[in-house]
């Protein structure tokens, strides 16, 4: 464990908590893409199947369980409990456009051709693009609530911090996994436009509103 990975994990955890609290406190999931949340749930379930096969540490197990359970809870809040507030008219990105290419890519580019390894690789590829329905929804409505902006910032920072973690691990542990690195890089790049708006607007006390 190094400082980048720990802060990355904490940013990830913070993002999830911000989102759950926002929905719970405001009793509304408006401005949140249910599709991105479904995709993240698929990501965690397919990646953390190793919870059943090998034990790494209490930290690792606890975080994996938190991610799976909290993403299921978020999906439940959006599609069941606060269904009436869900922006379904704006959440129109097609999930299959992300899921199918991720499956094909995972079958082609992976380390080993085993069920667990292909599913792990699929989860890495899908995670890289899972935020697209959410970014699409924000661009369609032209704005995001400030709390939603904080959520996106925390979630985007997490993989960026993991990139620093991989540089660290390459130098100090001789650890290198191109699949994670390239997907993590793509994932972080997708947030760049948002990061720019977040720093120039939200941090200056204004609402995130897209330029016309």
């Amino acid at each position: 464990m190094n400082i980048f990975r720990l802060t990355g994990d904490l940013a990830h955890l913070t993002a999830i908590i911000i989102l759950l609290l926002k929905i719970w406190k405001t009793r509304s999931c408006s401005g949140i893409s249910g599709k991105s949340q479904i995709l993240f749930t698929v990501v965690y379930i397919t990646r953390y199947l190793d919870l059943f096969t090998n034990y790494i540490s209490a930290y690792n197990t606890l975080m994996k369980i938190i991610f799976v359970v909290s993403s299921l809870a978020t999906v439940f809040l959006i599609y069941f409990k606060f269904k009436a507030t869900y922006d379904r008219n704006h959440d129109t990105f097609r999930m299959e456009f992300l899921i199918i290419p991720s499956i094909i890519l995972a079958l082609l580019i992976r380390h080993e051709f085993t069920v667990m390894e292909v599913l792990w690789t699929f989860s890495i590829y899908l995670e890289a693009v899972a935020i697209l329905p959410q970014l699409f929804l924000v661009s369609k409505t032209g704005e995001a609530e400030t709390i939603t902006s904080h959520y996106l910032f925390a979630l985007g920072s997490y993989r960026g911090l993991y990139l620093l973690n991989w540089i660290w691990r390459y130098y100090f542990e001789n650890f290198l996994d191109w699949i994670s690195i390239v997907a993590g890089f793509v994932q972080t790049v997708l947030y760049c436009d948002f990061f720019y708006l977040y720093v120039t607007r939200v941090l200056h006390g204004r609402k995130l509103r897209l330029p016309a």
């Binding site: 390894e117 650890f175 290198l176 996994d177």
Partner: peptide, 10 residues
Amino acid sequence: KLIKRRKDEL
């Protein structure tokens, strides 16, 4: 070896 070690990440 490398594949095993990345499994400690989330």
